[in-house]
């Protein structure tokens, strides 16, 4: 843990060399405010918390799609009671889950099991995520490859070119409101690279 904090400090130091004291102060105040909003102590831990997380993972057999934590059906109430009893008897989470699986079958668990065919439910999403990332990188590479070819076609002077469009809008503004535009155009130049878009 200290090692992590040390590294964080170093990173923070590196970053702070880029940041003025005032921004830092504003950031700190802001962070504190947000933190104040975010902190709600966890009042109950132990048995209650365990019961709740178990309840959230066990489905109510007669109300499709709802966990016994969520459902207000009588059977869900009874099942919550069973969870509680078994917990106070000192059973482990896995034991309790197995108890319900034996009684109602595997579909009583809210998440697919990690064996047999059901493991596909867990494997496919990460595989697709990886494939998508690779596709994203390839697409970026591919699109950059087109650069030379399209550069030629893209040298038109029409207002459809975004840069020209920019200048074009400015000219329109200038024509419409001579007094205002001096401020706008110089403002655009003086400000940062994020101000450029117009449409």
């Amino acid at each position: 843990m200290p090692a992590v904090i040390f590294r964080l400090n170093k990173l923070l130091y590196l970053l702070s060399s880029q940041v003025s004291a005032r921004t830092l102060l504003a950031g700190a105040v802001f962070a504190l405010l947000l933190t104040a909003c975010a902190v709600t102590p966890e009042y109950y831990t132990g048995l209650d918390a365990r019961a709740q997380s178990l309840n959230k993972n066990i489905m109510c057999p007669i109300c499709p799609g709802e966990s016994i934590d969520q459902s207000q059906a009588t059977i869900a109430l009874q099942m919550r009671e069973i969870v509680r009893e078994k917990l106070s008897e000192g059973q482990s989470d896995a034991q309790i889950r197995n108890f319900f699986v034996d009684r109602y079958g595997p579909s009583v668990l809210m998440e697919p099991p990690t064996d047999g065919f059901s493991i596909l439910a867990w494997i496919v999403p990460p595989v697709v995520v990886v494939v998508a990332i690779v596709a994203f990188l390839l697409a970026i590479k591919g699109m950059r490859g087109n650069e030379q070819r399209t550069e030629l076609a893209d040298s038109g002077n029409g207002p459809s070119d975004p840069d020209n469009l920019e200048r074009y809008y400015q000219r329109i503004e200038a024509a419409l409101e001579p007094s205002l535009t001096r401020a706008t155009t110089t403002g655009n130049d003086a400000s940062n690279g994020t101000e450029e878009s117009n449409g």
């Binding site: 959230k56 993972n57 489905m59 799609g65 966990s67 079958g105 595997p106 579909s107 009583v108 668990l109 809210m110 998440e111 697919p112 099991p113 047999g116 065919f117 059901s118 596909l120 439910a121 867990w122």
Partner: peptide
């Protein structure tokens, strides 16, 4: 996650719940 229960029923005959934790 929404349609996996259908696959699972077709493939192994048991309905699997894919719920909130997933």
């Amino acid at each position: 996650g929404t349609i996996f229960p259908i696959f699972s029923e077709a493939a192994q005959g048991t309905v699997i719940t894919v719920g909130r934790p997933f």
